[in-house]
Design a protein around this nucleic acid. Structure first.
Lengths: 242, 242
DNA sequence: TAATAAATATGTACTTACGACACATTAATT
DNA sequence: AATTAATGTGTCGTAAGTACATATTTATTA
């Protein structure tokens, strides 16, 4: 920096530091994906802002000064779903000037993948609900944009890396897996080619069991190879917080 | 005031501002890639923090309350290089608690691609220099991590989308293009297969000219099809700012 | 109990992408 | 005119992707 630039910067900081520069809030928003009833779903809450009356919004919160971005995301997930062992991935930041009606808030978007039927899962209250991703038209803030961006990222990831299994129970059939891929990608897949593709990836173990709750010939059950399970760095939450 | 006093004062103000519990500062850091002498380079500046004496850092600045994230990135690029028509892509946010010694600063990383030889380019001052990406070991802050992350993203993008041309002059030979890909990917490529691959993508126009400054048989010159040029939404900078 | 229905499980042929590799051509240099 | 060094193309074998058909197994129904 030149001396001239430094002078300018100093003057600038003195003038507006507390008024402006540090008047930008930072939040984390989580796109929490789940899978149920052959549909990809997302966990939403009714917006509590007047401007967005009747609309749903993603789950988010301001970042605390003493927590990492990921820690904040894990905290939100834990608070809202009771789960602390989830897949989480940062997507990107959203920071349009007018994205939040109450002031300048820059948000960092994460998506996470959750097994809706997981025994430990418990939604924090009753205005929190799973919504089919396909049926959503409008959300509060710029959350539809964030959701779409996260879905796109998810669609890219599932083809390369074994993350979809976070959406399924431990044991699953190949049909269930295919239906999940179809729900995420939004397209139909050829059963034979799908199985070939999965087989080549060598992600699964045949556990020697079969489905027992289907009204037709039961399929074999598989599970993900243990060494491929993505273990999220389990973050320690703030003491005193559930 | 001397320059040193100014620096101290700046640091002091920044530090004080950061003490407040709920105040987190937010910045943008730009990984500005260039290509020259068959090497991928990145534009760095000497760090002005004592903690990082002797180390280089990326170009960044705090985000102003009245500018979008992209606007802030464009501003930095314009201030530092004089260019305002550049390719820019957000990568992700970095927000470890202790990544900045003066306080909590969350930063959003962008990378951009610049033709170093562009006639309009002019570095803002002489402590600003191009460094070969391969030779960098340690940078100030977590900037090495940011750089590596951006490079990885770049490597993924160049295979799918025609962005590398932002690093080249308008006209180029296939050899130059191949050398650029090799520099970005860090691997050698087979000339015949490379040309086949580029040919299939149908990105280029043969402009009917040949190289004229090479000490051997000159190659044909090409340019990117105009409709494939990625036109960055040219952001309006703040009035009063160059 | 036997026939039927519905889903599982698997294989083949065709096309397309990828990688290793060789030879003729052109322009500058000697 | 011969030499050198890079340009410019083509082929072949392998791997992956896509379209597509038949036999098998279980639950259900008559």
């Amino acid at each position: 920096m030149t001396e001239r630039e430094l002078r300018l910067k100093t003057a600038e900081i003195e003038k507006i530091s507390h008024i402006d520069y540090f008047n930008i809030a930072i939040s984390v928003d989580c796109v929490i994906f789940g899978y149920d009833d052959k549909e990809l779903k997302v966990l939403l809450i009714k917006s509590d802002l007047e401007e967005f009356a009747g609309l749903f919004s993603l789950l988010g919160d301001l970042i605390r000064p003493d927590e990492d971005l990921e820690t904040a995301s894990y905290r939100i997930l834990k608070e809202r779903t009771g789960l602390d062992d989830v897949y989480l991935e940062q997507v990107q930041a959203f920071g349009s000037i007018k994205r939040h009606p109450s002031g300048r808030v820059i948000t960092i978007a994460y998506y996470s993948l959750i097994d809706i039927k997981h025994h430990k899962m418990q939604l924090s209250h009753n205005e929190l609900n799973w919504h089919p991703v396909n049926e959503l038209k409008k959300l509060a803030f710029d959350h539809k944009l964030i959701l779409d961006t996260c879905l796109l990222r998810l669609q890219q990831r599932v083809l390369e890396t074994p993350i979809v299994f976070n959406l399924l129970p431990e044991k699953f059939s190949l049909r269930e897996l295919q239906e999940l891929y179809e729900a995420i990608l939004g397209i139909g897949l050829d059963r034979r080619n799908f199985r070939k593709k999965i087989s080549i990836k060598d992600w699964l173990i045949d556990i020697g069991e079969i489905e027992n709750d289907v009204p037709h010939r039961p399929g074999k059950l598989y599970k993900l190879k243990p060494e491929l399970k993505i273990k999220p760095a389990r973050r320690k939450l703030q003491p005193g917080k559930s």
